[in-house]
Amino acid sequence: MLSKNKTGWLLLSPTILILGLAGLLPFIYVLYVGFFQWNPLAVDPSLQFEGFASNYRRLIFDEVFLESIWRSIKFSVVTLTIELSLGFVLALSLLSSFPLKSFFRSVHTLPLVIAPIVVGSIFKLFTVQGLGPLPHILKDYFGYTLNYGLNADQAFWMIVIMDVWHWTPFVTLTLLAGLSALPQDPYESAKIDGANNFQIFTYITIPMMVPVLIVVIFIRLMDSLKIVDEVWMLTGGGPGYATRFTGIHIWKEVFEKRYYGLGSAMSILYLYITIVICWVLYSVMVARGKNEE
């Protein structure tokens, strides 16, 4: 038994080592730096300890940071809702046969293989005033002015559209895999009992898909909460603060303004908030799943 354990630990050791070096050590360092005031551009560029909670206390009253969190949560909720709904519809459609189905599935999956920074560039080229075709089309045919450099709402929704375009295929493919693996017996029983399609969907499909949905929701939630690259490319966080999500805000504080201590505290606090959101969501979903059983 002991020898079996030893072999197990031996096999695990490279992974543990890599995780420790690449994950745990930086985390501990960020946690440590978060307790200090540290800006190398300061008159005194060394780490200044002003109490364990000084940076965290400051963040609680930092309106810009708090607004960026609220903005990120709002963005995540909106994109998640759209991507899940759209992804579910597409996954259900892909279960049935229709002409050019494989072609559609391949094309639909393409955005997934594109790097986020490239997605940002594509959307920028497509939508930028003066050069991009979309503002021209919208103006010429619909009389609508698209200028997300000026309009905060347009900037926010443009990023939502970009994220939905990029990540809905992931949701679709994951849900499709889940749907394909569902047992057919409950469906046959339901049909014999006279259930209609809507009832089958709400009382059989959804409850059986809960484990898959939990995975999809968590992956997308965590991803969308830390969005940076695409936004950086498209709007740079503007106009004003309109698309300054927490990831971008932290980047600007740390790498433009060099507030290493405060930025580290922001990262830790945001990680904590993300964990809390995920935990609450998980508890609600699991509890609901149990009730339905």
Binding site: L41, V64, P239, G240, Y241, E253, E256, K257, R258, Y259
Partner: peptide, 14 residues
């Protein structure tokens, strides 16, 4: 320079 300009940026954008 970087920190100062970074503080001014959002106001100019707005």
């Amino acid at each position: 320079h970087g920190a100062g300009r970074g503080a001014i940026d959002p106001f100019i954008y707005s």
